[in-house]
Amino acid sequence: MRAKSLLRALIAVLALAAAPSAARAEMLDKVSFGTNWVAEAEHGGFFQAVVDGTYKAYGLDVTIVPGGPNVNNRALLLAGRLDFFMSANTLQSFDAVANNVPVIAIAAMFQKDPQVLLAHPEAKVTKLEDLKPLTLFVSKEGVASYFQWLRSEYGFSEEKIKPYTFNAQPFLADRKSAMQGYVTSEPHLVEKQAGFKPTIILLADYGFNTYSTLIETRRDLTEKKPDLVQRFVDASVIGWYNYLYGDNKAANAMIKKLNPEMTDDLLMYSVATMKENGIVDSGDSLKDGIGAMSDERMASFFDKMVRAGVVKRDVDFKKAYSLRFINKGVGLNLRPKN
């Protein structure tokens, strides 16, 4: 009887191996992942995992749904039309708890938030505090979030703020001003547009220790399909290692196809800047792997946001995230040794 059972099992394995590729593809779990902006290098690891077959190797057929100014992918996640979403930062996770939104952060692809303030070289800014006398071009969202931290932790004044409309011209025209941006893009665009290298102050280096580019999903998915969630997280982590340290040409080609305004030089700049500043791979990720999070850091950022008046003290911030699917050292062998 045992011999017959083994024979049947062997026949089944051989039949699967010989099955047409289309039939095998049907066995992959279909997964949809929504980003929070148009395709760019800051999403590169996810595209990498698609084009190099990493998701497929983990049994997943992943469709990436780009975001944009008129796309609300987080709403699609809540409606069940997406399985995962790329959340901007930890504040969104805290806000979800405060408003009883049934989502949870399960991995943080960026150890550092890429938020920066740019200044003219003539302003002779060498540290964060040097920005205080300058006019600050800050967006409405920035005023409600990181600027409140600048006010509470460093004594910045709202009287210095002017609205930032994602147009660099007011900043370029005023040498006694500073402008918000992402370290991975705006410095490059300013240099291309105005011909000078701006001074860059990365807020993460001064204590603004939110995580960024988090993977978010519905709580029920982590409970009902934990294996699928784990496979998506692990494959995404490996995708990020390969995008940063391997051959990312195919991923960048996919990004440019989805976003024709993206250029090769900006993609190269963004990847180099992420590596130089440890945006993806630094801190806890050096020992726990990309995607790492910790209770201590979550508590630290929560306390800062409470002091800044951005988050209420009674929010149970520990419900905002889970460490279940991360900190396992996945992909550490893919980091270059030197």
Rank of each mutant, 00 (worst) to 15 (best):
A108L: 06
G80S: 00
K56Q: 14
A79L: 10
Q115G: 03
A119K: 11
F110Y: 15
V71Y: 01
A49I: 13
N70Q: 08
L91N: 13
V65S: 02
G59A: 02
E129K: 09
G155S: 00
S185E: 12
D83L: 14
P133G: 14
I64P: 01
L150M: 08
Y55E: 03
V116G: 10
L128S: 07
L60V: 07
S157G: 03
V183R: 07
R175M: 06
A108E: 11
P66I: 10
L82R: 00
G67M: 11
F110A: 04
A98R: 12
Q92A: 11
N167V: 12
K132V: 08
K132W: 10
A57L: 13
S157P: 05
S139E: 09
L60P: 03
S152W: 04
Q92S: 12
G53V: 10
V138F: 12
Q92D: 12
E42C: 09
S139V: 07
A105C: 01
G44W: 10
N73Q: 14
L82Q: 01
A108G: 10
E122N: 08
Y55H: 08
E122V: 15
S177F: 10
A108S: 14
Q48C: 03
S139M: 05
G68D: 13
K176R: 12
H43A: 00
G68H: 12
F85D: 14
V143H: 01
F156G: 06
Y146T: 07
D61K: 10
E129Q: 14
D130S: 12
Y55T: 03
K56H: 06
Y55C: 07
Q148G: 05
Q111N: 14
S139P: 06
L91E: 09
V116F: 13
D113L: 04
L60S: 02
Q148N: 10
E159T: 09
R74M: 08
K176V: 02
W149I: 09
V51S: 04
G68W: 13
A123D: 07
Y55Q: 06
G67I: 08
